[in-house]
Simulated scan of single mutants.
Amino acid sequence: MNYKSLLLQITMIVTLLACQNKHEAHEVNDADEVKVNKVMILADSVLTADQQAKLTPDEIIALLKKGNDEFVSDSLTVRNNSAKVRRAALGQYPKAVILSCLDSRVPVEDVFHRGIGDVFVARIAGNFVNEDILGSMEFGCKVAGAKVILVLGHEYCGAIKSAIDDVKLGNITAMLSKIRPAVTSLTSFTGDKTSKNNDFVHAVCEQNVKLTMQQITAKSPMLKELVDKNQLKVVGAIYNMNTGKVDFL
Score class of each variant (00 low, 15 high):
L6S: 09
D58R: 04
N68K: 07
V234I: 10
I13F: 07
K84L: 15
N230A: 12
D58P: 06
E109Q: 03
M137H: 05
P107N: 08
G67R: 06
N230I: 09
F200V: 01
E206D: 08
L55G: 04
F139V: 05
V234A: 01
H113W: 07
L42Y: 07
T212C: 15
E138S: 03
K38G: 14
K142A: 15
I10M: 03
M137F: 05
M213L: 06
A144G: 05
A53E: 15
P107L: 07
N80A: 03
V204L: 02
V28F: 06
D166Y: 11
N242G: 15
A182C: 08
T15N: 10
S195K: 01
A163I: 01
L186N: 12
V121E: 05
S195P: 04
R180G: 13
A43C: 08
K245P: 08
A218W: 07
A125Q: 02
P221Y: 06
K22R: 13
A43G: 11
A49Y: 07
V183Q: 02
N208W: 06
S45E: 15
I164N: 08
D69P: 02
D110E: 13
E155V: 01
T11S: 14
N2T: 11
A53S: 13
N68A: 04
N240D: 15
I238R: 01
F71N: 03
T48I: 01
D165V: 00
N68W: 04
C157N: 10
N242Q: 15
T243R: 05
S5Q: 11
L90T: 12
D247N: 13
V28I: 09
G91Q: 08
N230M: 08
I216E: 02
A182P: 00
K66F: 07
D228G: 05
V148W: 00
T217I: 10
D69G: 04
A203T: 02
T212L: 12
Q214K: 10
N80P: 11
A43N: 14
G67T: 00
H113E: 15
F128N: 01
T184C: 04
S136A: 07
A182I: 11
L211Y: 00
I41Q: 12
L64T: 00
D165W: 04
I116F: 00
S104N: 07
V34K: 10
K84A: 14
I149F: 01
Q207A: 15
Y93M: 04
M222H: 10
A159G: 12
D228H: 09
V28S: 14
N29S: 13
V129R: 06
I133W: 03
